[in-house]
């Protein structure tokens, strides 16, 4: 097995994708603490910050995974384009999905959203009005930052679009990784595809629930 062959690079894509999916799931689990109230969310945020070197190891790991995932995908996409220099006059699809055919586009848009998302919540430079808030016990008030942010419709729109693109990307990506890693067979291939779409929807709804709850006044 060579990691530079077509199959090897598919493995790189699938494995890095699955690990990044792990982050998407863990991040959602943390975010949902917003429903447990300010104390739970701010304490969780503080705990993460206190990890120190551990936090940086995780950040660098994620950055590395994302870099590998993006660079490999662009390389593969260029090769795929070269493999059919002249397109068909009539194009019909029978098995493929829009999500599957737009993986590069949705992936790059997610990347662009991610930069803005970090500028918003991590570096706190995108929206100075909600940046660097502290709660009564002197901790960074993540809860208030989230609530004040999502009271602005433009931020909500960008957020829902961003997590929507993540969902679209994953609706092909999850099932596709299982096939690439060779864990599918005739009996389960369709079920795996459907389960992938279902998980993607669940993640999207989980993330979108947060601004929805703020807009509806459930979280205030």
């Amino acid at each position: 097995m060579r990691l530079t062959s077509s199959l090897g690079r598919k493995y790189v894509m699938a494995l890095s994708g699955v690990l990044l999916l792990g982050f998407v799931v863990a991040h959602l689990a943390g975010n949902l603490l917003v429903f447990a109230g300010p104390e739970a969310l701010n304490a969780y945020a503080k705990k993460l910050r206190l990890l120190g070197p551990g936090l940086w190891a995780a950040r660098l790991g994620l950055l590395g995974l994302a870099a590998v995932h993006v660079v490999t995908s662009i390389q593969l996409a260029i090769e795929n384009r070269r493999a059919r220099p002249q397109p068909y006059a009539v194009v019909r699809h029978s098995a493929s999905t829009l999500a599957g055919r737009t993986m590069v586009l949705s992936g790059l848009l997610v990347l662009a959203y991610l930069v803005y998302h970090l500028a918003h919540f991590t570096w706190q430079t995108a929206h100075p009005a909600v940046a660097h808030l502290t709660d009564s016990s002197g901790r960074h008030d993540v809860y208030r930052m989230v609530v004040l942010s999502f009271q602005q419709p433009a931020i909500v729109l960008a957020y829902v679009l961003g997590v929507g693109l993540v969902g679209l990307h994953l609706s092909h990506g999850i099932g596709s990784s299982c096939q690439t890693l060779g864990v599918t067979n005739e009996r389960v291939v369709e079920a795996v595809r459907r389960a992938g779409r279902l998980i993607a929807w669940a993640l999207f709804l989980g993330y979108a629930a947060i601004p929805a709850a703020v807009l509806l006044g459930v979280v205030a």
Binding site: S6, K10, E186
Partner: peptide, 23 residues
Amino acid sequence: GNCTNHYECMDACPKAIHVKAIA
């Protein structure tokens, strides 16, 4: 090109060869 698991091949195959072979 490289496989991205669209499964168009399986639908087009005149012998209906399943993508389980790819797995």
